[in-house]
Design a protein around this nucleic acid. Structure first.
Lengths: 112, 112
DNA sequence: TTGTATACATAAGAATCTTATGTATATTTG
DNA sequence: CAAATATACATAAGATTCTTATGTATACAA
């Protein structure tokens, strides 16, 4: 498998979730894992052991709101950004964008 | 201080070092910390507790070569990429570049 | 002589992830 | 129709990677 060395993504799971919820309004955990896989073309596969505890923490911190919904006999837990979460997301995403720009500078192939 | 949330850089220290050594040939630890600070405009400040153990590990793995040099009464430990290290760096840096592109896709502001 | 800078090093603890495991339902396939 | 795969949540143990704190030593400036 040519799956990305996932350690590169350490610390980025939280902003990724916030970005997705900002764009899509409302998502459930499993949906997030699928969406990330799709967008990154399988380069990043979020594990459940990383995702669910993080969602719980963000809910406890008042960044996310959660509500259960039943589809047939299947239960989904939908998450969305709270007002506080939206404010926090704005700042966090700016930081990430600045971070990405810095990475481009750091890893720009030298013109020899 | 508007220093970057450094947790974003988790997992990137190793490729950063490899990139710098690839470009500059030969550097010592303290020099690396200063160079990174300069390039990132203070957004990333590598701590010694992170850097030195990592350099030791890379040396033990045969990725880096080390040699001491004395300047007056001051000792510096210079590191450079071994042949093995150069091969590994080529692959690792491609991965990082692909990673950075993925980040741009993930965090590209939506055109509404 | 006190503080700041250079230069290395290590240890304890925190944060964040992987791997493994568990529960439960739905759907596809041999 | 049994077994495998997919959906959907959850948690615990352990690994990795970093921060913070501390230590040693020299050089130079205030």
């Amino acid at each position: 498998m040519s799956v990305q060395k996932s350690s590169l993504y350490k610390g980025l799971l939280e902003p990724i979730i916030m970005q997705l919820l900002k764009e899509n309004g409302r998502m459930y955990g499993f949906e997030i894992t699928q969406k990330v896989k799709e967008i990154t073309q399988n380069q990043l596969q979020i594990t459940e052991g990383a995702l669910y505890p993080l969602l719980h923490r963000l809910e406890a911190e008042g960044v996310l709101d959660a509500s259960m919904e039943t589809f047939g006999n299947r239960v989904r837990k939908y998450y969305s950004l709270t007002t506080k979460g939206k404010k926090q997301t704005a700042g966090a995403l700016k930081e990430v964008q600045s971070f990405v720009e810095t990475l481009q500078i750091l890893f720009k192939p030298k013109l020899t």
